[in-house]
Design a binder for these strands. Structure first.
Lengths: 178, 178
DNA sequence: GGAATTATCGACCAATTGGTCTATATATCG
DNA sequence: CGATATATAGACCAATTGGTCGATAATTCC
């Protein structure tokens, strides 16, 4: 997964994969079929990791606003400095392959949907607890937050400092909570 | 430019470039040096186009809130439906090459800076005109908007409808203006 | 018009791409 | 132990990669 993550699909050549898996050509093809299948497998793992992380951060038993703060803080951490430079397998894949690879399309689409649903759920719990500002509607606010964090991944490529990214995320959340 | 735009750097092979430029191999190399230089030239044009478009939308002689609305509407248009599927040369390049190509790094970084400066300027004019909500600070709000529109480009790869994207953008702007 | 220069082409090149296949080692099991 | 099945390695392959070069066509200039 790591090698696709930091290089992208096309830029990752078989030798890179062999080095990373410590397998020989024959074994790799016996185990995974081909480069594309292996990539899909890596992408699936990346997505599963991201979703389980969100399930922890936005756990319904936690305070929803704390959960959203943790969720944003996680993105801030992953998109600033050297972490930001490394980028995101999912966003890189979306930009590189979406629209040309049906398998990828499905995964990208369902990931965004799943992420948005989790954020929307947290927001609606926050609203029920009276912690949301007036006139904030949870489903559009969820779309906003999803766009924002994915945008962080893009802007993070320029390696901003954690301080400024965190301040930006805080400023956004402040427009929604009271 | 078009071919890099819709395929990305690595996925664009010489034959694609030859077809697009209607040049032969020799002529192309005589005219542009190599693939990398040609790519940089395409990227520069893409960036210049984006900045001049912003200069029109956020023209200081216009009402700043109208300008911001036009700016967001432009992104909504470019990131929904089939336009969204096509993606964005700049974001794709950031994800694919940033951190591995110094020339690209410089361009990506300065583009984000330039975009943020223009948005911040429009916001500060809006503030001076008393059209911003209380406690909105123009520089962090500008960072938020930049992240948001870049996030739109990513999420746009899943080809959302113009209606929902526009509603999302409206909902965000509503948190800032009064 | 004719010489000199420039632009254009596509055959050609080495290196690399993703992928296959056979020979050999390793493990499994009676 | 010995036979069989499995896993591994890396030589090998056709196709494609980005890039070069010499022959030819077009243009420019006197």
């Amino acid at each position: 997964m790591g090698v696709f993550w930091s290089r992208g699909y096309h830029a990752t050549a078989l030798p890179d994969l062999l080095r990373a898996t410590k397998l020989s050509r024959g074994s790799l093809y016996a185990a995974f079929g081909d480069k594309h299948s292996l990539f899909l497998r890596a992408l699936d793992r990346y997505i599963a990791d991201a979703l389980t992380r969100m399930d922890v951060e936005l756990d319904p038993r936690r305070d929803p606003v704390d959960g959203l703060r943790a969720y944003l803080a996680g993105y801030v951490d992953r998109t600033s400095g050297a972490n930001g430079r490394r980028g995101c397998l999912l966003v890189a894949t979306a930009m590189e392959l979406a629209g040309r690879d049906a398998e990828v399309d499905r995964r990208i689409g369902s990931f965004f949907k799943a992420m948005e649903a989790r954020v929307a759920d947290a927001l609606s719990r926050a609203k029920a607890a009276g912690k949301l500002a007036d006139a904030v509607e949870h489903s559009s606010a969820a779309k906003i937050l999803v766009c924002f964090v994915e945008g962080l991944r893009v802007v993070g490529k320029a390696a901003p400092t954690r301080i400024t990214s965190q301040a930006t995320a805080d400023a956004l959340l402040d427009r929604f909570i009271r």
